[in-house]
Nucleic acid binder design. Structure first.
Lengths: 334, 334
DNA sequence: CTGAAAGCGCTTACAG
DNA sequence: CTGAAAGCGCTTACAG
C-alpha cells in the first residue's frame, strides 16, 4: 500500500496554474485575488480534496488557544458519574462561544502516561484538572512545564503551587451531621468517598466534627469510592456492624441512591428507620424516592470559576484558589 | 502587557551552550549525546520551562492520528443523555490503548460553524459523527474535504457516501408493537423521538407496521425529541387525546422513564393500566420502578464498530455500513 | 558525540 | 492583482 500523501498547497497551486501565495490567499479568503485565479484555485481545492496542514499554518500564524480538561478516571466513570458529567458540560458550555478548543483527556493510572505525554508535548496551552487522587503525579508535570493549570477540587497532596476551586467539603460534612442530630438520630454512620481524595477526607472530617460537637460517637464509618456499587456495599457492611443504625451521611448522591435502594431492598424504610443525607444535589436527588436531602455542590459555578481562572492564567494574571460555600437542601430522605 | 513569548529550542540551546541539534536530541531522548551536554540541556529546559512547539515538531515528524468525535447536540444534552454518554465512553475506551488522540466536539446548530471550521481546518485526521439531524450539513463538509468519517446512526438524508453503523430501529419499533399487542393491549400509542432524525422516523415506522399487521390503528402518535422533558409532555398530550390508552411505545428509555413518572403521578399504574416499552436498555431501565421492558441498543458494539471502520478508512480500506440487530428485553413495565 | 544545513507546508510583508 | 522569498520552530541525514 503506497504511503498516503495528502495534497499540499503546492499541488493546488500547480493544478490551478498560480503561485503558492495566491493559492494560500484564496484558501484564506483574502479578498485581493482576481476572480479567474480564485475560481481556478477553488476547483483545484475540491478536486484534490485539499485540507490545509494545520501544523504548518499554526507555525506561522497565531492560533486560538486550546485547553485540556483532564480527568484522571476511567472513561466509563467519567461519563457515568453525574458530578463529572455536569462539570464537563458546564466547562465546555462556558467555552462554547469562545474560539478556545477544549480537549477532553481521561484515563485511569495505567493511561496517565498518555496524559502526561500530552501535557508535556506542547499540544495544549493550559489545563483544567478534575479530581486528584493521592498517587496522581500530574501536578508535577504541570509545574515542571509551567503549563497554566487549575484544579477543580483541592489536590490531596495540598499546596502544589497550582490554584484550585473547590466546595467547602468540611462544612458540608458537618452540616450533614448536624442535620441528622437535630432530626433526633443517635446512631449515625457515614459512607465516605474515596479516601485518597481531598473531598473524601474532608467530608468525613466535617461529619466527625459535627458528631463530636453533639457528643456522639464517630466510629460508624465505612469507605466507598464515590461509585454507585461501593455505596450499596458499604451500607451492607454498616448494617452488619450496627443494625441499630438510624442516620446516615453518604458522601455523594450517586452512592446515596444506591444505599437507599439497598436499604429499601431489605425492608428498611427511609427516612422512618434510617434518615439519609447525600452530597452533590444532583438531578437524581430530586428524582429518587424518597427525594434526597443533600448538600449543594455548586458544580456550574466551580466550572465557570475554573475556566475564568485559567483564562486569566493564560494572560499571565495570577489566580488564587477559591472555596465555595455549600448548604443543605432539605427534602424527604432526612 | 508584553506579548508572551514561549522559550524555544534555540533559547534552550543558547543557555546550555550547545547547538539546536543537540538540544533537540536531548529533548527527544536520543541516546548519542554526551552526558555533560545532556545535563546542561536538561537544566536549561526546566529552568526555562521549555515545552516543544508541537506544530513545528509535527511538521517534520509523523504524528499519531487524531480523530474527532462530533456530536451536533448541546453540551448538557451530550453529557446527560445516557445514549451519548455510554457511546462516548465506549469510543474513548476502545481507543484508550492506541496512540490515537480523541477530541470531542459538540455544539448545537449555532455552533456548528465552529465544528465545520474544525473539520475543514486540518485539525483532525478523521471523524466519528454521532447523531444526524435533517438540517445538519456536516456531511457535506466531510465529503468535500474527503475527511475519513463514519456515522453512528444512519444520516437522515440517506446515502451521502459516508458509511454508518446503526441499530435496526425499524425492527425495534415493530417488536415493541408486537409485544404490546401480544400482551393484549388494544389502545396503543407511541411517543416518537426527534422526527428530523432517522432513529426517530424508523422507530415510528416500525411501530406502525407492527400495529398494521395486528389490524390496529396507528394514529395515537405524539412527538418527543429524545429528551426527558419531552417524554413527560408527550404522554400528557396522549392522555388528553385518548384516556383509554393501555399500551405505549416510547422511543427512548430516557423519555420512557419520564413518561412513567408522569403516569404514576396521575395515579395511572404501570403496567396494569398502561404497559410501557422503551428503547435503549440503558442503566435506568433496570433501576426505575417498575423495571422497563425495552429494546436493546448495542451501543458498545456500535462504538467499537465505528472505531474500527474509521481506523480502516484511515488506512485506505473501504468500509461499508452495518446495521446491528436488536431484541426485546422483557422486564416488568410491559 | 556534535554541529551546519536542509527542509517540513504554510503565510505574509515586500516588490512589482 | 500576483509572485519570489523569507521565516515560523523543529528534526534529521550528512559530515566530521
Amino acid at each position: 500500500m503506497p504511503a498516503k500523501r495528502l495534497p499540499t498547497l503546492e499541488d493546488v497551486a500547480a493544478r490551478a496554474g498560480v503561485s503558492r501565495a495566491t493559492a494560500s490567499r484564496v484558501v484564506n479568503m483574502d479578498p485581493r485575488v482576481g476572480s479567474a485565479a480564485r475560481e481556478a484555485v477553488q476547483t483545484a481545492v475540491t478536486e484534490l480534496g485539499y485540507r490545509p496542514n494545520r501544523n504548518a499554518r499554526s507555525l506561522v500564524r497565531p492560533e486560538p488557544d486550546s485547553i485540556a480538561v483532564v480527568v484522571p478516571e476511567a472513561e466509563d466513570r467519567v461519563f457515568t458519574d453525574p458530578f463529572f458529567a455536569s462539570l464537563l458540560a458546564s466547562i465546555t458550555q462556558s467555552l462554547a462561544d469562545s474560539p478556545v478548543q477544549v480537549l477532553l483527556a481521561m484515563g485511569q493510572p495505567g493511561n496517565s502516561l498518555k496524559i502526561e505525554r500530552y501535557l508535556r508535548g506542547g499540544y495544549t496551552d493550559g489545563a483544567i484538572v478534575v479530581s486528584h487522587h493521592r498517587d496522581d503525579h500530574i501536578w508535577q508535570v504541570l509545574t515542571e512545564t509551567r503549563l497554566p493549570a487549575v484544579y477543580v477540587g483541592r489536590p490531596y497532596v495540598g499546596d502544589v503551587g497550582i490554584p484550585y476551586v473547590d466546595v467547602n467539603n468540611h462544612a458540608g460534612g458537618r452540616l450533614a451531621a448536624e442535620h441528622l442530630v437535630t432530626a433526633g438520630r443517635r446512631c449515625i454512620g457515614t459512607i465516605t468517598g474515596a479516601m485518597d481524595m481531598a473531598a473524601g477526607e474532608d467530608r468525613l472530617a466535617g461529619w466527625r466534627q459535627g458528631l463530636h460537637e453533639a457528643g456522639l460517637p464517630d466510629d460508624l464509618v465505612e469507605h466507598g469510592d464515590f461509585s454507585s456499587e461501593s455505596g450499596a456495599q458499604a451500607v451492607a457492611r454498616l448494617l452488619a456492624r450496627q443494625p441499630e443504625l438510624d442516620g446516615l451521611f453518604v458522601a455523594s448522591d450517586l452512592m446515596a441512591v444506591a444505599a437507599i435502594h439497598e436499604l429499601q431492598g431489605r425492608g428498611i424504610r427511609v427516612p422512618e428507620d434510617v434518615a439519609v443525607v447525600g452530597f452533590d444535589d444532583s438531578q437524581a436527588a430530586q428524582l429518587t424516592r424518597p427525594p434526597l436531602t443533600t448538600l449543594q455542590n455548586p458544580v456550574a459555578q466551580m466550572a465557570t470559576t475554573a475556566v475564568s481562572m485559567l483564562m486569566g492564567l493564560l494572560e499571565e494574571q495570577p489566580a488564587s484558589s477559591v472555596v465555595l460555600e455549600t448548604e443543605l437542601v432539605h427534602r424527604a430522605s432526612a
